[in-house]
Design a protein around this nucleic acid. Structure first.
Lengths: 247, 247
DNA sequence: GAACTGCAAACTGTCAACAGTTCACAGAGA
DNA sequence: TCTCTGTGAACTGTTGACAGTTTGCAGTTC
């Protein structure tokens, strides 16, 4: 956990509740608060330098975003995901991103697709010179693709699904293994998109998501159909840098 | 506004905040609080017999559901929709429901599809004997279809999109005009689904959603690409029974 | 008459205290 | 030794009051 929590929260967001929502989301996604862990309202509020009111509002928002689970009179817990829930999220992504592919194929300008391609090459070169597990977290390739579809409602849903999956992946302490393969598949997808080949793009996207899902589930060690991991408090088994498998 | 607001809120939900969320959502969707109208926290809280805390939590939740818009230091407003936003929501529905069609076609049992068909006939007969604008609001045909896909994440997104469109439709005081046509198209869709004709079902769904969107936009009188209607307070132009165009 | 300034009322954002529930542990009983 | 019950600490849900912002209006100036 970075020690900037006590610092001024309001330069960007003009309300403690909004600022707290951002800070909390970050803490959850980067693993500062591990999956299954409970959020103690009075401790957390005082450590953030605010009172429980704005904190509770932030918790409500993150709950409807699917990052927290709150049980009445018992508290808010960082959400954990069963194998089935992860499959469902990938199915949701397929629904959204396959439609995004259709829209992009029909609407995006050549220049926009070229930008996407350039961004991808940039990622690739940065991955080559780094140790391999530094994946740019800023804005995922898939989210950029959805952004190109030019539909805010679609983007919002996609972002939510991605955040949930990012949290789900953080349930394992594993290093990413599929980053390079994913980038290659992204490249293929952009190529067929630039050729306006909708059928090809659709097929590639389906295969890509299947690979990604298989990798995620394997990494999480959830082979069977077992139930959701129960709420284990104090499991802070993740790495310090917060990078998790992309995609 | 029904006068049950002051009555006990907690039989079903065990928290005032949860109960208030349900009550407020209903009030928004049935038009008790018109689109664009502002929610006065102290007035509303006292009329619900609670304090501002739980009310504010409910407001946060409905905001992230897309039914309210809150502006810092100015208040929460029932959301209004521009033409473009409605188009976006229909596009989102297309993404979700076309995928649902694929899943249902592959997974749903014959018995489940038969149930869906029976439900439809029931709706049809009830529509025939009523005056025509009483459409069963309980659970829309499309949502039942998504439910059959057996994916909670998908269902959640679809439900949210439907609620937003339901609110959008309530912006006009018009009676529904397309209910009968919609039911017919639903019947055709179920027929091809029962034949496991994925291509046919997809085509029908696309056409059906296009019709539905065109009707919604026409009814709302938003022909051009004009901006979002600005926040008009005190526009209570809707009918009293809360029924709005289906679909 | 129009535009600007300053003030007051109304309202939202935040806080600290109270109330009700949950949970863990100690002690009694079998 | 094990199970059950009761009690108290810890925590969440709710409340009422305080603080800061917005907004409309009155008064002033040009």
């Amino acid at each position: 956990m970075s020690e900037s929590d006590q610092s001024r929260l309001l330069p960007r967001n003009n309300t403690y509740a909004q600022a707290t929502e951002s800070v909390l989301r970050e803490m959850i996604l980067d693993g500062s608060i591990g999956p299954g862990q409970r959020l103690n309202e009075v401790t957390l509020a005082s450590s953030l330098g605010i009172s429980r009111g704005p904190l509770r509002e932030a918790i409500q928002r993150l709950t409807s975003e699917g990052l927290l689970t709150v049980i009445s009179h018992r508290g808010a817990f960082v959400r954990t995901f069963s194998r089935d829930e992860i499959v469902e999220l990938y199915e949701l992504r397929a629904a959204l991103e396959l439609h995004a592919v259709r829209l992009v194929c029909a609407r995006a300008s050549d220049a926009e697709l070229e930008d996407l391609d350039a961004m991808l090459s940039d990622t690739e070169s940065r991955m080559r010179e780094s140790t391999g597990h530094a994946y740019p977290q800023e804005l995922d390739f898939h989210l950029r693709l959805v952004l190109l579809a030019g539909n805010q409602a679609l983007m919002r849903s996609a972002l939510e699904a991605h955040r949930q999956l990012s949290l789900a992946r953080s349930m394992s302490g594993q290093r990413p293994t599929r980053a390079r393969a994913a980038v290659v598949e992204h490249g293929e997808l952009v190529a067929v998109l630039r050729a306006r080949d909708l059928e090809g793009a659709t097929a590639l996207m389906i295969r890509h998501l299947d690979h990604s899902m298989a990798s995620a589930i394997a990494v999480l060690g959830l082979p069977g159909d077992e139930d959701a991991p129960t709420t284990r408090s104090d499991d802070r088994s993740r790495g310090a840098d917060g990078t998790v498998a992309p995609d």
